[in-house]
Design a protein around this nucleic acid. Structure first.
Lengths: 359, 359
DNA sequence: TCACGATTTGATAACGATATCATCCGCTCG
DNA sequence: CGAGCGGATGATATCGTTATCAAATCGTGA
């Protein structure tokens, strides 16, 4: 209830000047151990704690990191956020979280606000902003920054990414190896960088196997979980329907599982990019390419702390790899070729060739 | 790259004093529209934004809310956090998140740190600290505070809780109504308030039905997901084993599902307190008592903003109710009494029967 | 024309810390 | 014995705002 004690109060009580107190707090040297002792007792007695606002105002940097993320509700980012918060707190830093908003302007404003708070560093999951053109005082010469999950457009800075293309390419090849040729690609926020790379991986794997890419097999969910039309149903009822699904992120996987389950289509193979809570307890258990969001968060924080402590080496690009876990859903074979052919025979695909390809 | 412009710069450019600029920014009155216009142009030209640190230092309150939560990794709290962040940002406030740490001292330190940052208000999920005895300058006469999910020990303040006891009582009664008398209770962090209340609900429902409480049916997981021994197996292999499980929070439910699934015990009934991602896509779909973490977050923020704007009415206690969703797993009947008797008769628990059970 | 209230503006002191430089003190050394 | 030195301490300006009160300005009525 009583106002917080200040340096002044401590100085008064211990009979020294505020500078001496300040020195005791910040640096042990240059102050006699006797007086230091007296000051420390006064600090203890009053329960003094330095005011971080005043300190930041004067020094120009705060004992806090800023995290800009699109949404913490996404379980992937929630896990990452937790890891960042934990690492930051271990280093004695607070974490200020802000979501990026819906437009580049908002994203910019959010970052400017954080910078005005003199955060010591920023971890950013870039969404909509073209960072290179913004001339924000971040990166080399400005506030240290680490980009996570997606690279900043047009800017060189520390970046932590997962090997999206590789992971999905492998996952898709896995499905192909099990006999699938009609593989749907499902994702939320498909226009985002990481999804784009995953999409490339998907296309490349198809290309490697000589399978033509069919845009009608792409399912795009909105990031908003609330209203999802049964988007998957469409690709499963095409004339030449999908026999397997590659879902490209956790939220999409949840949707896909929900849909497959409500359709009772346990014959459809599924590989999920991103592991999720009870993937292994589903029927069938879901084969996944697992990213480690916590590792990502820890890595980003580690790089950021190095920068804050003065590391000026060239920007680093960390590429985390994924772990492929075969659990069952990814190893389902398509219905026999004859089945397929007869099915394909009944119908005419969308625009696609008029006549089914030979064999 | 150039340092942020300050009031001084704007004043210089527009040919007025810094006070006039300050007035233009904070209050339109008392300044001629002509000069105001000039000042606004200068602000625009320089891209000036007020420094929140300096402002907070001077005024004693920051445009930020503080959130203290045990762990954001818990999906329930992640969803709540997202809702809080969203509401706060709509009100033009930042959100500073801090996790409470592992001891009362840490929790106290975290709150003091936030207070030193002059946050306008705090939302706290109290963990270990006895708030009544701490004499923290929060609540009436101090910084507005709203407690969430658990009530503060020994302190009167705005609180948002779910009706834990009711929800679990109903869920347990539901299992009993379906013929179960041996119902396990599973939870993580069982010593916490909300789990305690849920436990009470469980006990009360048993009492209502005249079933004796058996402590050997309680499964306590640690909040740490990493190493969970197969705790559930024990209660399923008792001489008089559980035929149903009531899992008391989301993380426990995930564990229970994992265990039941790996044991292939689809004969065990399950009701989960807390809905979770693909509960309805499991086999069988999981019956749940659903809390709404987003509603909880929004409600808390709403109450807090009212307080910040000067509401001094007596503390409010909001009690959110749960929604019961029958999906299948909670409606499984126990094996017939004869089956049970024969099993119980043949069997010695752990090393499993030597001989396969008949039929 | 001048004095007067009402309004708009400005000068200056906080807020609570740190940076910078000056001062003080006790030593050593010439 | 006094100059010089170095380590400990203190006085003061400063960070970018807002609060407070004083000053300037204006229009108006006697």
């Amino acid at each position: 209830m009583t106002p917080n004690p200040t340096l002044r109060d401590v100085a008064l009580l211990s009979g020294v000047s505020i500078m001496t107190v300040s020195r005791v707090i910040n640096a042990e040297w240059e102050v006699t151990s006797a007086t230091a002792q007296r000051v420390r007792e006064a600090i203890e007695a009053l329960g003094y704690r330095p005011n971080p606002l005043a300190r930041s105002l004067r020094t120009g940097h705060d004992e806090a990191l800023g995290l800009v993320v699109e949404t913490i509700g996404d379980p992937f980012f929630a896990a990452m956020t937790e890891a960042v918060e934990e690492s930051a707190r271990k280093a004695g830093l607070f974490l200020i979280i802000a979501s990026a908003g819906k437009s580049p302007e908002e994203e910019r404003a959010v970052i400017l606000d954080l910078l005005h708070r003199s955060v010591s560093g920023l971890i950013i999951v870039p969404c909509l902003l073209a960072y290179g053109k913004e001339r924000l005082p971040i990166g080399a010469g400005g506030v240290p920054v680490v980009f996570v999950d997606r690279p900043p457009i047009d800017l060189e800075a520390d970046t932590v990414l997962v090997h999206n293309e590789d992971g999905v390419r492998h996952a898709t090849a896995h499905l192909i190896a099990h006999g699938h040729r009609r593989i749907a690609f499902a994702g939320t926020g498909i226009e985002r960088f990481s999804l784009q790379r995953r999409f490339e991986g998907y296309c490349n794997a198809l290309g490697d196997a000589g399978i033509e890419y069919d845009p009608s097999l792409v399912v795009s969910y909105t990031p908003d979980t609330r209203d999802h039309p049964p988007a998957l149903t469409k690709v499963l009822t095409l004339r030449d329907p999908a026999t397997a699904v590659l879902s490209a992120n956790e939220m999409a996987s949840l949707e896909v599982v929900r849909e497959l389950h409500s359709l009772a289509r346990t014959d459809i193979a599924l590989v999920s990019f991103d592991d999720f809570a009870i993937a292994e307890s589903l029927t069938p258990p879901v084969t996944v390419a697992r990213q480690d969001p916590a590792l990502m968060g820890r890595t980003a924080t580690y790089l950021l702390l190095r920068r804050i402590r003065g590391d000026t080496s060239p920007p680093r690009h960390v590429l985390l790899s994924t772990t492929f876990l075969e659990r069952g859903s990814g190893e389902i074979e398509p219905r026999s070729t004859s089945d397929l052919r007869s099915q394909a025979g009944t119908g005419l695909p969308q625009p696609v060739p008029v006549r089914a390809p030979p064999n």
